[in-house]
Design a protein around this nucleic acid. Structure first.
Lengths: 271, 271
DNA sequence: AAAATAATGGAATTAAAATTCTATTTCTGT
DNA sequence: ACAGAAATAGAATTTTAATTCCATTATTTT
């Protein structure tokens, strides 16, 4: 069997599997069958574990990897590990890479950002805690007035939410600190707050959230990490991990989540 | 610091992180922050990789693991590896599941919006006119001050652009009509305007674009159809077609395009 | 300001995992 | 059934990664 270059994607892996599978000897066939059914384990298992689970010797797994075109198990595993982490090299490196390879055109960059957005959206759907989401929607739909707070990078999201609520004729207020005022006294009992903030967490947003919590006004937090100060309050937290593009982070996932909150709570009110 | 038993779930991990995070010394705090933001990498990274990414020594990561209650990194990693294999339905499966069963639930809605966003991004990459994009980037990188105009649905995009330029220390001005003023006289020769508007096209944005064109200030237009009034001016036009879901239209593609303009023009200036 | 305590970086050590090698077994074609 | 080829198991080796240790640096207390 002649050597073909190693697959470069998970799809490529499956294709190759199909190509080589015919006329495979017993142990290698066992490997093929096990790996076809449990590709997701490759990223986090050792050769020994895979071998045991497939009922073969580690060396059989090694031979199988080489048959697939990889230099060994580690190289194959790398493919799956990379596909799991929505990780990107640093923005500067990436840009430099694009430029060096002569592909530094704006269109190439656009494709990168589009890719980053897509990955963020996929990760969002598989990670979001649907119980928290349901609770958030409930709280928002029951609020008299919805307050929306988000500054800096979170501001576009807050602005979009305010726009969406306005369009649905839902009483809503955008806390944008115009004239450096904060309008905390506009928050009344029976209202709810959607607070959006990402590291480095802006104090103004956190303050407002604290003010609300102290008064029993429910807070829905859209944030990025478990260390967010909003997690300390017992807010209903929705965590969003956007794919990094170094200094520039997409907002696709955050916006999709925000839209969902607005639309779902609007729909619930019609029930 | 007294030892508490190791967290037994990913949620438990986050909780413990919150508990211990206060008063953490510098390097351990770096670990905490990095791991809070990138928990998904733990399952597939080595100590050395985590340490490098967090900007600390491997031994610091080890001490952090022990502080969290684990015997070491391997034990902590096991938690995340198990949670991956246990049941992490990937994006496609999850989407299918939601379509079939939980129709109408907030999670199902989220999946729909994510899908709409993904398709918008795909369409964007294949439809965008790269010559126009190149010209737009050139014009923006050569401008003294970049003006950004967008109202209503386009406002979040304009706000994001203003934020991105600010972060890159690029002189930029967001025309937001605060106090119903328009700041058209702030546009000077040598500047450029990025005008964003979608049907129904808001008069204020179009007026500003006309004002600029009349004075020889180049205009980059982000818009949705060939019928846009911005197309009548000889602006550099970038068309974006967002896929809509119900009455709500995503902004993913528009934002990706906006980010590209900002980053590409920023990169060009470094040449 | 000095002593005590805690935190850190980096090398040294230990442990674990990947990979290779080879004797043995199992096929294949005659 | 037999020779030759292919495949396999398991041990041996090499490589890589986790963990510990300790000298040095920073921080806190007296």
């Amino acid at each position: 069997m002649r050597q073909r270059p190693a697959p470069r994607s998970v799809e490529g892996f499956h294709d190759r599997l199909l190509e080589i599978q015919e006329g495979l000897p017993k142990r290698l066939r066992q490997c093929a069958e096990y790996l076809a059914a449990h590709t997701d384990r490759i990223a986090v298992s050792t050769v020994a574990e895979i071998a045991a689970a497939a009922g073969v010797q580690p060396s059989a797994v090694m031979r199988f990897c080489q048959l697939m075109g990889f230099s060994g198990y580690s190289e194959m595993q790398k493919l799956f590990r990379d596909s799991l982490t929505a990780a990107w090299p640093d923005y500067r490196e990436r840009l430099k890479g694009l430029r060096d390879s002569g592909a530094g055109s704006p269109s190439a960059l656009l494709a990168e950002f589009a890719e980053a957005g897509t990955r963020s959206l996929e990760a969002l759907v598989s990670n979001v805690d649907s119980r928290q989401l349901d609770r958030a929607v409930k709280v928002i739909s029951e609020a008299r007035t919805v307050h929306v707070a988000g500054l800096r990078r979170a501001f576009p999201v807050a602005a979009y939410l305010a726009y969406a609520f306005e369009k649905m004729e839902r009483p809503a207020m955008l806390h944008s600190r115009t004239a450096n005022l904060d309008a905390r006294h506009a928050v009344r009992e029976g209202d709810a707050l959607i607070a959006i903030t990402f590291a480095p967490y802006s104090a103004a947003t956190v303050d407002l959230a604290e003010h609300c919590t102290a008064r029993g006004v429910p807070v829905v937090a859209i944030t990025d990490t478990a260390l967010s100060p909003l997690m300390q309050l017992d807010a209903i937290s929705l965590m969003v991990r956007e794919v990094d593009f170094g200094a520039f982070r997409a907002l696709s996932a955050t916006l999709a989540l925000a839209t969902t909150l607005a639309v779902a709570s609007g729909a619930k009110m019609l029930d």
